[in-house]
């Protein structure tokens, strides 16, 4: 199952994990040590992050390292996008209103054509 990226970053722990591994690759133990949470719980979060392609796991000797996928992250980290979406939502409503206004005007003044 391809997970929704937005769903993946909606969780504060997962956002924290992304922040950590975006700076440098880290092994699972090091990540887990930074959280007041069980190892399996952290593993589960990491699993979700790998499933949506935000991080990948690389085996290095006996250690498994988490590496951030910067290209995928850039897609999410486009910080203007939610702001743009908000305006898009408003302007779509404005489109509807303008259409309504146009119709009303035509009614009032008869068909202008």
């Amino acid at each position: 199952m391809r997970r929704d990226v937005f769903q993946a970053i909606a969780d504060p722990t997962r956002r924290e994990i992304i922040n950590m591994v975006a700076q440098q690759s880290m092994n699972l133990n090091t990540i887990a040590q930074n959280f007041d949470m069980s190892r399996p719980a952290i593993s589960q979060h990491i699993k979700i992050l790998t499933e949506c392609g935000l991080i990948i796991i690389k085996q290095q000797g006996r250690e498994r390292y988490c590496e951030a996928q910067l290209k995928q992250l850039a897609e999410v980290a486009d910080w203007i996008e939610p702001f743009r979406k908000m305006w898009e939502h408003q302007f779509n409503k404005l489109d509807d209103l303008l259409n309504q206004m146009k119709t009303n005007k035509t009614k009032k003044h008869g068909n202008k054509k």
Binding site: D4, F6, Q7, A10, I80, P82, F83, K85, M86
Partner: peptide, 18 residues
């Protein structure tokens, strides 16, 4: 800050979607 407030809302919408 203003642009990012949209980001936070976006994340909340992410929660709603979830």
């Amino acid at each position: 800050g203003i642009v990012k407030s949209g980001m936070e809302r976006g994340l909340k919408e992410g929660f709603n979607k979830l």
